[in-house]
Design a protein around this nucleic acid. Structure first.
Lengths: 342, 342
DNA sequence: CTGAAAGCGCTTACAG
DNA sequence: CTGAAAGCGCTTACAG
């Protein structure tokens, strides 16, 4: 076993000072070519690599980004991480990932942990519980200490920082309107409880689309699901008790469960009931019928979030309080769970 | 903006030495109760938290684990990360994630990066390219420097270290044998190219099952897929040109593509062709028909890998060269793409 | 051209 | 009981 070599050891071997070694390796013109080359050769031979922790301490920069997300076993979030990773890597940054498991406490603990020197900035999406409690002190605190934060997808207006989102309201509006334009009138909505920001916005888009097309809101057609694992009985009731011609589901899982339930109840999809989902993940593509859905490009969101964060990290004026909210465009992906929508 | 407070600042404010502050905060009995309490109160007030980078440098321990995987947008790997994260978090470790994108170079770069002080040990799964080139010098090097490595899923015998795997050969054998036991005779195999270790092992299990049941190997029934994106034409040929009664696919994507292709060619699944997959992810569950498959519990693999790594990190005898290969059990998940298998 | 010193933020053996 | 010193591995302004 040969431990990693340090400047000190090189200095000793070569009988020069640590400073000389350091400068040589950084190609300083202060040092004579002679010793410079000698040191470099030696360093190369022993495969010297600077200790990044020491550099971090010295520079007060870690070149790593902290990511805090509710879950990783969730295609959309995995996609965003991938997007972040790629631009981060390109620019020489590493990525620390922490999962909040939708828990406020874990989100707080993880943030405080990472804020103690481990990272230069955060990219995060709020946990459900945090959104419910509306307690964002941990985030404000971090920002207050001068550490930039970029929020994506599940964001809040209560914190001033850069954000990357899609226009959930508009995308939902367009999806529902395209159902209406194709003759649908009894449109069910499967959505989340209201405290989930994106769920709420998508619900609002649904409502707006109906109203602006002269269709009154019927609360019987709307179900708000708290616990995704037990949603199928609620969905079954929704379908059985109402003579729906279509359903808008605010995520993939709700959409695929709606399809499975409808099929089980002997409805044909899309002939009897058309179904539109939200978020274009694996399921939408491989379900039968495959699911017409609103694509939400996680890679792009991740790319953008990383760009924004790194830009802020590397910008000169530290105290730029001009926060940007970047809206990533969405579009409708036509598949088999609806008739072809005009 | 109020920057994070340091020992130095506290010392200055309270007009004591840095050592006294440090000791007080660590509840050292060396310090009088008086000053101890005073310091602690002050620290609490200013929300002092030790700088983890400084601690890392001092202790030569970062309390963070490096994870290197080929891709994150892949349910199985996301699952493993989740499993690692949870036990890591419990034991006070953080997790840095790097993606190799199936590239040897990126794998090497990422490992070298992290090995320079950022982490205490690695958990990794080999990139395809690395498996193809059979070049593992970067891994041996890291191990040689005294940094423990745990490999999972895509492992190699050429490196001595702890490993977490499933018995790919046996699981495949059992899957294929269960097809045979249910009267199947012309069993197609959709597998990867041989350099992918798990693909090769699963192929071997298939071969063994056939031979030990007196069925000769017919190479026409075996396709080895290099590029997953263009596999459907190969699969179409396989199904069209051979009178298969069943197919064993070594992963979910091959399985679902086989189902889609079979359906398109007007074969009924499972009546005309039964299909068994490998890896129980989202797709297997939501495909129609849902896919009978061999479950490979990523969470458990992640849990175990993290446990093994942390145990090694925290064990007394550094130089324990007793490496363990932990085999996680698999089982067959019966779904709709096969008849009920006895 | 080279090296000693100070410093990043911490801990701890040692002196007083 | 308190503090100065050394050290983790590095960089850099300064002195010689």
């Amino acid at each position: 076993m040969k431990r990693k070599v340090t400047l000190k050891q090189i200095a000793k071997e070569l009988d020069v000072s640590i400073s000389t070694v350091s400068k040589s390796l950084r190609d300083s013109s202060e040092i004579s070519e002679d010793t410079r080359l000698k040191v470099q050769a030696f360093a190369k031979l022993y495969n010297y690599k600077p200790n990044l922790i020491a550099l971090s301490l010295k520079n007060k920069k870690t070149k790593t980004i902290g990511i805090i997300i509710p879950e990783i076993v969730h295609h959309f979030f995995a996609t965003v991480i991938s997007g972040i990773e790629h631009v981060a890597n390109e620019k020489g940054y590493n990525v620390i990932v922490c999962l909040s498991d939708e828990s406020f406490d874990k989100e707080v603990i993880n943030m405080e942990m990472l804020a103690n020197g481990s990272i230069d900035g955060f990219i995060m999406s709020l946990s459900k519980e945090t959104q419910q409690r509306k307690d964002f002190h941990h985030i404000s605190e971090v920002i207050n200490q001068g550490m930039p934060v970029v929020m994506f997808d599940r964001v809040t207006n209560d914190v001033l920082c850069d954000k990357v989102i899609i226009d959930d309201n508009l995308a939902a509006y367009q999806a529902v309107e395209s159902l209406i334009n194709n003759g649908m009138k009894k449109i069910g909505l499967i959505t989340t409880v209201d405290y989930v920001s994106v769920g709420k916005l998508r619900t609002e888009g649904y409502v707006k689309a109906l109203l602006s097309n002269g269709i009154p809101i019927n609360n019987n057609l709307i179900i708000k699901i708290e616990d995704i694992d037990n949603c199928s009985s609620q969905i079954e009731e929704l379908i059985t008790n109402n003579d729906l011609d279509s359903i808008f589901a605010v995520n993939e899982l709700f959409a695929v469960t709606a399809i499975k339930t409808a099929k089980r109840l002997k409805f044909n999809v899309p002939e009897d009931i058309a179904i539109i989902g939200f978020t274009d993940g694996i399921i939408s593509n491989y379900s039968s019928p495959s699911i017409t859905t609103i694509s939400q490009n996680g890679i792009k969101m991740g790319n953008k979030a990383a760009q924004m964060l790194i830009e802020r990290l590397e910008s000169e004026d530290e105290e730029n309080e001009q926060y940007i909210t970047e809206v990533i465009e969405t579009h409708l992906v036509q598949r088999e769970s609806t008739p072809i929508l005009k």
